[in-house]
Simulated assay, not measured.
Amino acid sequence: MFALLLLVVGGAALLLLSMDGGFAGLDEGQFAHLVYFGAWGLLMAGGILALFRGRLFGALRDLMVWGLVFVALIGVFAYSHELKGVGDRVLGVLMPGRAIEVAGSGGTQYRVVRSGDDHFHVEGSIDGRPVTFVVDTGASMIALDTVTAERLGIDTAGLNYRADIMTANGVAKAAMVKLDEVRIGGIERRNVQAAITEGRLLGGTVLLGMSFLNTLTSFDFRRDTLVLTD
């Protein structure tokens, strides 16, 4: 192998000295680089053959396996963004209520898969505290009951329950408040109007009503998917 390496390098050197205007489309510098890396390749190949002498087939098999692993890792890195999107979509199906960001021509979009009870439950937060909303286009604003509001750290002392709000279950008496922050995925809104109903009227459910939905560029129901566009 060493003799072959010397022969190749020597022949290449002679060819390089006699070159005038390049060789096979390569200029002198490119050809010199080719010879340099080719020589190192031959040297490494010779070392591998010497190391695995007697079990060449196993060595070639191992090299092929590692080569495939390397190609796979490069592929994962190159398509990491696309693979993340696929993973998010799978999680969206397996975990209804998870807001999955998708590319949209009209702005940032989030998709939510319908839950088994035929409602759209959306994970989000109110004033930094996690909450699961139920989308209700029949509710004029975000609505939650007093017990849930207190759990979320909202001060309910002195509330006056004299306003009428429309929910899917009809008209309810409520007190008007402003929520400092409402967030779903990367969609954030400040000073969002909300209604707090007395006691446990909503049974712990937090309705995502029109006071939030109307701030979006659009919201669309596409069969079993809700699309929120910021």
Rank of each mutant, 00 (worst) to 15 (best):
E28P: 02
E28Q: 14
E28R: 15
G29N: 06
Q30F: 01
Q30A: 15
F31K: 02
F31E: 02
F31P: 02
F31N: 01
F31Y: 11
F31W: 04
A32I: 11
A32L: 14
A32H: 06
H33W: 13
H33M: 14
H33Q: 11
L34G: 00
L34V: 08
V35G: 00
V35M: 06
F37H: 11
F37Y: 14
A39R: 04
W40M: 15
W40E: 05
G41W: 08
L42P: 05
L42R: 02
L42T: 04
L43G: 09
M44K: 09
M44C: 07
A45R: 03
A45G: 14
A45C: 05
A45E: 07
A45T: 12
G46K: 03
G47R: 05
I48A: 11
I48V: 14
F52R: 09
F52Q: 04
F52V: 15
R53G: 01
R53I: 03
G54L: 08
R55M: 08
L56D: 06
L56Y: 07
L56Q: 07
F57I: 06
F57D: 09
F57T: 06
G58R: 08
A59S: 13
R61Q: 03
R61A: 13
R61W: 09
D62F: 13
D62E: 14
M64I: 11
M64V: 11
M64D: 11
V65T: 08
V65I: 15
W66A: 01
W66S: 02
G67V: 00
L68Y: 00
L68T: 01
V69N: 01
V69S: 00
V69M: 02
V69P: 00
V69A: 09
F70R: 00
V71N: 02
A72Y: 12
